[in-house]
């Protein structure tokens, strides 16, 4: 995760250098997005009504080291999307899966364009469903519902949009069950042996800050690059690891995708 931070900073600094180059060329630094250039998924920038955007890509989460004991990347494929509504409102969401962990997020935000920056605020619901059958014969199922109130600020530069998003993580519900063991101990497993728990937490379990870049990569194809630094008592990607730590754990999520 530390390595990813360094990469991110280098990329950000690189963008700054480019902007300085633009100054020298006497070109306008900032422009409003034209219809062809409204490639915004993460940015708070308001776009034309009924306009939608979708990005397809991958996510690499580096799970919290106290839980995994070793920095293990957890990959996932994902779709991120945004659909603009009247009155600067927008629906945004995310779908992701690596088979073991499946996520779905949907939320609404209100956006505002200022001369250089755009601001946004919103709320989303985030569902996690996990299902793992371990190779040595037992099955774990997990469900949870989390809410993320968020605030977003985007900086519109030439060809590039930088976005910072701050989110709070409010865990509402989680349920975890162990079961369906294959009975390698020579017994016939009975349903009453299944153990698990259900909690209605409704508690602030952490927060996250996401930094992202949306920029053209090849011809008119845009890419979305970003990183999320999350501090959480219950990192969603590590649901199967029986978190016993009474601490907010640091995890990093690096995401990259092509904007379709």
């Amino acid at each position: 995760m530390k390595q990813l931070l360094v990469i991110w900073l280098v990329l950000l600094l690189s963008v700054r250098v480019t902007v300085k180059g633009a100054e020298g060329a006497d070109t306008a630094l900032v422009k409003p997005a034209t219809e062809d250039e409204q490639h915004y998924i993460m940015a708070a920038t308001a776009v034309d009504w009924w306009r939608g955007g979708l990005s397809a890509g991958v996510v690499f989460s580096v799970l919290p080291q106290p839980l995994t004991e070793y920095p293990i990347p957890a990959p996932m494929i994902e779709l991120r999307g945004r659909f603009a509504l009247p009155l600067n409102l927008a629906i945004y969401g995310r779908l992701g899966s690596n088979i073991a962990t499946n996520i779905g997020q949907i939320g609404a935000m209100w956006t505002l364009n200022l001369p250089v920056v755009s601001l946004g605020g919103g709320l989303s619901g985030f569902i996690t469903y996990g299902n793992i059958t371990y190779i040595d014969g037992f099955n774990v199922v997990h469900e949870r519902l989390t809410f993320y109130p968020m605030a977003t600020a985007s900086l519109r530069l030439e060809k590039v949009t930088l976005t910072a998003r701050i989110e709070a993580e409010v865990l509402s519900y989680r349920r975890s069950r162990l079961g369906d063991a294959e009975g390698d101990n020579g017994n016939d497993r009975k349903n009453q042996d299944v153990i698990g728990y259900t909690r209605y937490d409704r508690q602030l379990t952490g927060g996250a800050i996401t930094l992202s870049i949306e920029q053209p990569f090849w011809k008119n194809t845009h890419i979305l690059l970003g990183v999320t630094f999350a501090y959480s008592r219950t990192p969603y990607q590590a649901w199967f690891l029986y978190n016993t730590f009474d601490d907010r754990l640091f995890s990093t999520e690096f995401f990259a995708g092509f904007i379709l």
């Binding site: 902007v19 180059g21 070109t27 306008a28 422009k31 409003p32 034209t34 030439e158 060809k159």
Partner: peptide, 10 residues
Amino acid sequence: APQLEPISDS
């Protein structure tokens, strides 16, 4: 450049 103009690669 008060007029916002199309941007070319910098």
